[in-house]
Design a protein around this nucleic acid. Structure first.
Lengths: 153, 153
DNA sequence: CTTTTTTAGTTTAGCTACTATACTATAATG
DNA sequence: CATTATAGTATAGTAGCTAAACTAAAAAAG
């Protein structure tokens, strides 16, 4: 009840806490991992596989928006994934400029292994945090993401 | 009280929420920004300035550990910052292999502008979240970071 | 003391993951 | 149609890393 709408006198550490998080996230985001038959994939590669798996038939441009990178970046990533036989490009039936993306069998396997790891990660978090805390956490991350999004504009 | 130590049936979205966060953080981490007299600095550059500012006289190796990168990476970054006249290398008095890092006047200005921005960011968060929520958030980020750290090993 | 090993930092080649820019091809609009 | 917008690609260049080989000084072992 008290101490709302104040400046950060009472929270000198949150900035540092977030700093550590960023360091760990960056570290994670540069370590490739193995995904079964698909072999070793970089974080960017598996993120791309994940986005295609969640939105089957997604187009190049939509994928670029989802990942918040340029279309050029997506072209490069998808080409690499195609070479690895994880993703297939097919022409869009209604717009012959556009391309639809789908996962191959191998791609789906990688997708599933990745989802499974998310699951395990979540469960580890749930072991250490109560459902109430998780709920607050989710709200906070959401707010944080929005402030960040605004900041990134 | 209920539903503790369960799997994630009740939280199908947290994974997606965190995914969005990661995308925004990565986006932030590749956009250079202006820091007064120091000019435009990349995220890695300002992180390095920040770490030196917080631990004046820090050595190359300690800095590498703090940033969780190799010493080679730190050498490259510090060399660039030295060229930009933000950082100074001086030989360590007790160990002539080692190097102590300090900020120049210009470096300190960049440091302060950066700290100021952290402050503003925190205040924006505090406008939208109660102190109680922030406290939980901090705990959760901490837990999350630790799980991540373990995962990164 | 020397010799050997460890530690602190540097250098370099190579990789990922982007961006910006210029391009081709198709679609939509006047 | 001619023009403009949209979908995707190609390419050159950059940041930010790593791994491995290196130099020099300190510490440990003999």
């Amino acid at each position: 009840m008290m101490n709302h709408h104040k400046d950060n006198k009472g929270n000198p550490k949150i900035s540092h806490t977030i700093g550590s998080l960023i360091i760990q996230l960056q570290r994670m985001e540069r370590n490739p991992r193995s995904f079964g038959q698909a072999g070793t994939l970089t974080p960017s590669e598996i993120h791309t596989v994940d986005a295609i798996g969640l939105g089957d038939g997604i187009r190049m441009g939509q994928l670029a928006k989802r990942l918040e990178v340029t279309k050029g970046a997506v072209t490069q990533l998808v080409s690499r994934l195609e070479k690895k036989h994880l993703v297939e490009r097919t022409r869009h039936p209604d717009d012959s400029r556009a391309i639809q993306l789908t996962l191959t069998e191998k791609g789906r396997e990688a997708f599933q292994i990745h989802e499974q790891r998310h699951h395990e990660f979540q469960n580890k978090l749930l072991e250490e945090l109560s459902p109430e805390e998780i709920a607050v956490f989710e709200k906070c991350v959401h707010t944080f993401t929005n402030v960040l999004k605004e900041h990134n504009t």
